[in-house]
Amino acid sequence: MTDRKRRLALVASKGTLDQAYPPLILATTAASLGWEAGIYFTFFGLDIVHKERMGKLKMSPIANPAGPLQVPTLIGAIPGATAAATAVMSKWMDDAKMPSVAEFVDMAQGLGVRFFACATTMGVMHVDETDLIEGCEIAGATAFLDFAADADVQLFV
């Protein structure tokens, strides 16, 4: 143990259901260990902290051969395939007693994990501060790097 708290800096760049979990799990774990933790939500990763979209994240069967729906890529493109894969994935998580994305967001914030919302993404995708959940800090790359520069672990998801 060092005197200074350890720090985890994560970039969450993807907005699919399966890719929303790893940054939330890692940040929640880090905070449980007594570390400081922060997640920079950028591009489609911003959906994870978007009030309307966070509960509607989808699991894509395309380009995801290990996904719950074992179908050829072409079949994955037909209507309903994404919804089916999402339903299966959600059931897997429920059956394993894993919290939902929204629950993980609550757990992380409850432990003091800092949420940075990418300002450029907000501009590009016309996302307003009021579209995001409470407690997000609007930040550009510079502010996040300022936080990440003192991190012991930095990961891009």
């Binding site: 774990t29 260990l33 394993a96 894993m98």
Partner: peptide, 14 residues
């Protein structure tokens, strides 16, 4: 019992 990572660690730390 029955809980997967990170829940045992999360709950234990609380």
């Amino acid at each position: 019992s029955g809980l997967l990572c990170p829940l045992p660690v999360y709950k234990a730390s609380l």
